[in-house]
Design a binder for these strands. Structure first.
Length: 422
RNA sequence: GGAGAGGUGGCAGAGCGGUUGAAUGCGGCGGUCUUGAAAACCGUUAGGCCCGUAAGGGUCUCGGGAGUUCAAAUCUCCCCCUCUCCGCCA
């Protein structure tokens, strides 16, 4: 959520920035107008309240002295009604402002490349070289079926489309990856491991920005107010919602393994084959809460933490900076990590690392105190996948496949899987 | 699921419907004392919003919402959460 005051005081600047994401001009004007009205109402009603408080005090004094206060009481009867009227109007304007503000995306950082679609995303760097095969490499589905470790058909029998069943070494590899990533994040990255709830309430979803705008992407649990998390970002970032953290608690580094649940509405026909796009997938997430001054430095570090996993797994990847039109709703800047997929002969997203600045912390009223004497401020929040586990698994299958259809296990992972080949 | 208890400032814990944003204690910060520290003593210590260049002034907030009243932390109703006991259960 943007700062109302900032928006109203810098409306042309905000308009120009948001123009890169779409047309929010009308909404901004509505906000500005509603805010003017709001301020007027407040000024008027506070005058009345002041009078009410003063006279109430007089009444109290008179009563104490056992004197008559009838005149004052009847005088105040009308005042109280008018205050209530103002209150109603004020609530109306404030709700209007909040409803709009919750649906306005974050301002983009100056360094975000300008572009009109994903073609304009900017490659930042590349690591590793795509493997050369002296045979035609298979895609992960073919490999998975041959090895009897991925079963899509039976998964659709018990659930539906966009679900998968991992079996035997497949299941074990997935589990090994989870442990490997968590270990790396905690031991080398300094992240605290969290095992959060996989269902959260509406307030949490609003805090990180999934609601109110993107409800069609979420699974809601019937007969309850719970939503299945689409990413661990939601429970992790919301842990300290409505709190004022001490400066000594920052920076906060959190990591968690969770399954993620997404409706994938609007992705009909996209990635229908295989494990790329599922309704349920495993992910290890990194979340940071940091002081504003250091957040962009922290974004670089967080991205490197995610990269490190791919490097240890010897998977070739590249990093791109998402361009203005490809950026997500709440992010000010995003790097995507894309891993090499031999079967598709291209890089595909395996992690997304973003700085949300104070967009989320303002939504969830998460603050920190820079020092004991100063006012609380909104910290910056960041998150990134490290990594999407299912996509990592298939990247390993495809990049480490051998001529005979077997899969070599990357060195770093062998002790976790318990074999060097499947 | 059943029965009961309770939600007040960073924490603990008071609070006859009327100068109570809120006693007191602890903690935090500043100071006095001390060679230094501790102790003791003194002072200070919530957040949001509005007006104002500022100094400052005003206003709201005692889990959330609605109501009664000239006036609500205090009374009424609804909701949420926590704890204890019983039942069920991984």
């Amino acid at each position: 959520m943007l700062d109302l005051k900032f928006v109203c005081e810098n409306i042309e600047k905000v308009r120009k920035n948001l123009n890169q994401r779409g047309d929010f001009s009308k909404l901004l004007d509505q906000i500005s107008a509603a805010n003017e009205k709001r301020k007027k109402i407040i000024t008027e009603s506070e005058k009345l309240r002041q009078e009410q408080n003063k006279v109430s005090e007089e009444i109290a004094k008179l009563k104490k002295e056992k004197k008559d206060a009838k005149r004052q009481i009847s005088e105040m009867k009308g005042v109280s009604d008018r205050i209530k009227q103002f209150e109603t109007e004020l609530n109306h304007e404030e709700k209007k402002i909040k409803d709009i503000l919750l649906n306005v995306p974050n301002l983009l950082h100056d360094s975000v490349p300008v572009g009109k679609d994903s073609q304009d995303n900017k490659e930042i760097r590349k690591w590793g070289t795509p493997p050369k095969f002296d045979f035609t490499p298979q895609d992960h589905l073919v490999l998975g079926e041959k090895l009897n470790i991925i079963d899509i058909e039976r998964a659709s029998k018990i659930s539906g489309s966009r679900f998968a069943l991992l079996k035997g070494w497949g299941a074990k590899l997935e589990r090994a990856l989870i442990n490997f990533m968590l270990d790396l994040n905690t031991k080398e990255g300094g992240y605290q491991e969290i095992l959060p709830p996989f269902m959260v309430n509406q307030t949490a979803m609003t805090g990180t920005g999934q609601l109110p705008k993107f409800s069609e992407e979420l699974f809601k649990v019937q007969d309850s107010e719970y939503y299945l998390i689409p990413t661990a970002e939601v429970p992790l970032t919301n842990i300290y919602r409505d709190e004022i953290l001490d400066k000594s608690q920052l920076p906060l580094y959190l990591t968690a393994y969770t399954p993620c649940f997404r409706r994938e509405a609007g992705s009909y026909g996209k990635d229908v084959k295989g494990l790329i796009r599922q309704h349920q997938f495993n992910k290890i997430e990194l979340v940071k809460v940091v002081e504003p001054e250091s957040s962009y430095e922290e974004l670089e570090k967080l991205t490197q933490d995610a990269e490190k996993i791919l490097q240890r797994l010897e998977l070739p990847y590249r990093i791109i900076s998402l361009c203005t039109s490809d950026m997500g709703f709440g992010a000010a800047k995003t790097y995507d990590l894309e891993v090499w997929f031999p079967s598709q002969n291209c890089y595909r997203e395996i992690s997304s690392c973003s700085n949300f600045e104070d967009f989320q912390s303002r939504r969830m009223n998460l603050r920190y105190r820079p020092d004991p004497k100063s006012k609380p401020r909104f910290p910056h929040t960041l998150n990134g996948s490290a990594l999407a586990v299912g996509r990592t698994l298939i990247a390993i299958l495809e990049n480490f496949q051998q001529k005979d259809g077997s899969i070599k296990i990357p060195q770093a992972l062998q002790s976790y899987v318990g074999t060097d080949k499947i």
